[in-house]
């Protein structure tokens, strides 16, 4: 708890938060795995033992061997190389979608608390509407009208992710607005902008971090689903989802082939989930699921905790 209060100072110090994270074993594993994935995303294509789109036509659907460590696919492309080179597109897509979602959701979530009931109502309805649109159906519609490309797909996913950010930002800000020290600051003449920057933002940020980690995980799965449907990335370029889609036709010959992309995906998404939990533990961000939901109380952090988190300057 000592570390958590340190990380929660007036100006959230990133190194302190990272140190605190590093002390949690599960977070350490997660960070290492994610660092590995990031490394693959940057250097994967350069380090791949074979050209990821070169077709070794006489070595189609091979099992693992010395030449092809993870075997070859249905046109004889090296699976290991495709996995390594495909990391970039698979991960970048998800990260881009989450950035778009956060850029749309966080400011509107903050604004909804301050801009009066009418705009608040409208923004809530927009969020409700985006929540009901299924990712895949919406992405197909976007591909059909605006063209099938990575950018369009990512914008579609980002827009549909934004309510998650909107809601978490909004609920934290809503709870803090009534907190005594915020009211006190306003009574003493602080402008809304100043309170926002000084008191609200440092509490919203950990929640946004937790949500980002989780959302990146789910975006990764959505992106995989989309490339499975043939949306986003066009076929010869390797992605994990696209590899799974190609494996589908050859399950009878190579039932074990999906294991490799799936294992990478599980490692990445699992690490992101572990990281989200760890950030929550370290920073005291509001837990996502509370038993009290059924009573219709929105996810406002308990006031006792808020005040506990504040470090007197």
């Amino acid at each position: 708890m000592r570390t958590s209060t340190r990380a929660q100072g007036r100006r959230p110090a990133l190194p302190a938060a990272l140190t605190a994270l590093w002390r949690i074993p599960s977070a350490r594993v997660a960070l290492l795995v994610l660092a590995g994935i990031a490394f693959l995303a940057v250097f994967g294509e350069a380090l791949a033992p074979h050209d990821p789109i070169k077709q070794y036509t006489d070595e189609v659907l091979q099992g693992p061997s010395a030449a092809h460590l993870l075997g070859t696919d249905y046109v004889g492309r090296d699976v290991l190389s495709r996995l390594m080179a495909g990391t970039r597109l698979s991960v970048l897509g998800a990260v881009e979608a989450v950035l778009i979602g956060a850029a749309l959701g966080v400011p509107t979530g903050l604004a909804s608390v301050w801009l009066g009931p009418r705009l608040e109502w409208i923004s809530l309805r927009i969020s409700d509407t985006l929540v009901i649109l299924p990712f895949t159906v919406f992405a197909i519609a976007v591909a059909g009208t605006l063209g099938n490309g990575l950018q369009q797909a990512m914008i579609a996913v980002g827009v549909l992710i934004s309510p998650t950010f909107y809601r978490i930002t909004r609920s934290v800000a809503l709870g803090l607005r009534k907190a005594q020290y915020v009211e006190a600051a306003e009574l003493m003449g602080a402008t809304e902008w100043w309170t926002l920057r000084t008191h609200i933002w440092s509490k919203v940020l950990p929640n946004v971090a937790v949500t980002s980690a989780q959302a990146t995980g789910s975006a990764l799965l959505v992106v995989a689903s989309l490339s499975f449907l043939g949306l986003g990335v066009t076929p010869p370029a390797p992605t994990w989802g696209g590899m799974l889609s190609a494996d589908l036709g050859y399950l009878a010959q190579q039932p074990w082939a999906p294991i490799f992309p799936v294992a990478l995906m599980m490692a990445t998404v699992g690490s992101l989930n572990l990281l989200a939990d760890a950030i929550r533990d370290v920073t005291g961000a509001a837990p996502r699921r509370r038993r009290r939901r059924r009573r219709g109380i929105s996810h406002v952090p308990a006031p006792r905790k808020e005040q506990h988190d504040v470090v007197p300057v």
Binding site: L221, G241, L244, L248, V262, V269, G270, N273
Partner: peptide, 9 residues
């Protein structure tokens, strides 16, 4: 942590 279609595969 799995994409929904993997269990189907």
């Amino acid at each position: 942590t799995l994409p929904p279609f993997v269990m189907g595969m």
